[in-house]
């Protein structure tokens, strides 16, 4: 995890670059498969590359998002409130990634 401002900046940019191709895959998949029923959704997620890319999109997404949320929190809040909001953001990011991976491996 990034420690200082410089490594945070680098982590934000690196995760952004990783997300570009995965987001393109996600949008393409959404256009191709939107509205499918449970069987369609499961068949799609059962394919290894879809499972892996979906999990990666969510995981790198919340990692990148947590950096951005921290940046916004730092701009508008001081001290204890900023710490509380940061903790909520981290907890949400971890929870979202965990629920996604556990669910993906149950399919």
């Amino acid at each position: 995890m990034a420690k200082g401002p410089t490594s945070t900046f680098a982590a934000q940019r690196a995760s952004a670059v990783i997300l570009i191709p995965i987001a393109l895959w996600f949008l393409w998949s959404l256009a191709a498969h939107a509205g499918e029923d449970l069987e369609g959704a499961r068949n799609w997620l059962a394919q290894t590359h879809n499972k892996f890319l979906f999990g990666l999109f969510v995981t790198v997404g919340v990692f990148h998002g947590r950096i951005g949320l921290h940046e916004i929190i730092q701009d508008y809040f001081y001290g204890g409130m900023a710490k509380t909001l940061d903790t909520i953001a981290i907890a949400a990011a971890v929870l979202i990634a965990l629920i996604t991976w556990i669910s993906l491996f149950q399919i």
Binding site: L38, F54, G61, L69, A97, I99
Partner: peptide
């Protein structure tokens, strides 16, 4: 949009959970 995307990711987690 960054905040919205974070929220959208939560919806993806719910969708995957429901599919499982």
């Amino acid at each position: 949009t960054g905040v919205a995307n974070f929220t959208g990711t939560a919806v993806l987690a719910v969708w995957a959970f429901a599919a499982a």
